[in-house]
Amino acid sequence: MTWTSAADAQRYGSTILVGDRVRFRALEDGDLPDLVRWWRDPEWAVLQQILVRPRPEETVVETFRSWSRSERSGEVGFGVVDRASGELVGHVTLFGGALPVRAASLAVMIGSEHVGRGYGTDAVCLLTAYGFREMGLNRIEIQVHAFNDRARAVYRKVGYVEEGVRREAVFHDGRFHDEVIMSALARDWAADVSEGASEVR
């Protein structure tokens, strides 16, 4: 849509960080205890991390601070909060989206007690839209363990396509597991939006 007034720009600005269920904001110090707790929980770490291992709190804190600095043009990170209550429910980031390729990787973590309430779907949809509409990305991809059927269903629901498999790329429980590469392209996303197909949140 071509903007013809300041009001058009302000309407866009009022929605770019707000989804149906969540909104994005900068990382706050008060977020860190929950983020550390969620990241170090082995039951959930096995779904996202390459190696399940306890890490010192300071290391995890610095990881989230690094992901959230949003200083480089191709990287951004947000705290994810419930739109109505303002309660922290997770964290999202896009990284590696620099010129000339403009292809970023997406990472999302929803706190264990908040899973299954639609926060992850809304957060992925909102971050994908942000990447294409505000960062000028051409491609966003995510690598997900093949056994994480719940996450793969979320990504498919918001328009990500399974495009390849990294065979036996993950090792847990004494055996190797596949990793699935999923992606969304700006042109496909724009077409879905124009057809109203992106209203899946």
Rank of each mutant, 00 (worst) to 15 (best):
G136H: 09
A98W: 13
G90S: 11
S105R: 09
Q143T: 09
R117I: 07
A129S: 11
L106A: 02
V115R: 14
H91R: 02
A107V: 10
G97N: 05
V81Y: 09
N138I: 03
M135D: 05
R139D: 02
V80D: 02
L99H: 11
F95G: 12
F132W: 12
V92Q: 04
L88F: 12
G136E: 08
M109E: 04
I140V: 12
I110L: 08
C125T: 07
I110Q: 06
T93K: 11
Y130P: 01
L137W: 02
E141R: 08
A84P: 05
Y130D: 00
R117L: 10
L94R: 04
G116I: 08
T121D: 01
V108T: 05
A129Q: 10
R139L: 08
A104K: 03
H91F: 15
L126A: 00
G97F: 01
A104Q: 02
G116P: 08
M109A: 10
E113N: 15
L127M: 15
A103K: 14
D122W: 07
R83P: 01
F132I: 08
R102N: 13
L127E: 03
A103C: 14
E113S: 15
G131K: 00
E134K: 13
L106D: 00
N138L: 13
H145E: 07
R117K: 15
V144M: 06
V115D: 07
S112K: 15
V89E: 04
R83W: 06
I110F: 07
V101D: 10
G97E: 06
A123N: 01
Y130R: 05
Y130F: 15
L137P: 00
P100R: 14
C125F: 08
V108Y: 07
L126K: 05
G120A: 10
V115Q: 12
A107E: 03
G116H: 09
N138E: 12
S112Y: 15
Y130A: 00
V124Y: 05
S105F: 04
G96M: 06
R83F: 07
M135N: 04
L127S: 01
S85D: 12
F95R: 14
M109L: 15
L106G: 00
L94W: 08
G116L: 07
V115I: 15
V80W: 06
R102M: 13
G96R: 02
Q143N: 13
T93G: 07
L137C: 03
T93R: 15
T93C: 14
I140W: 06
R102D: 10
E113F: 07
G116V: 10
R117A: 10
G131H: 05
S105G: 13
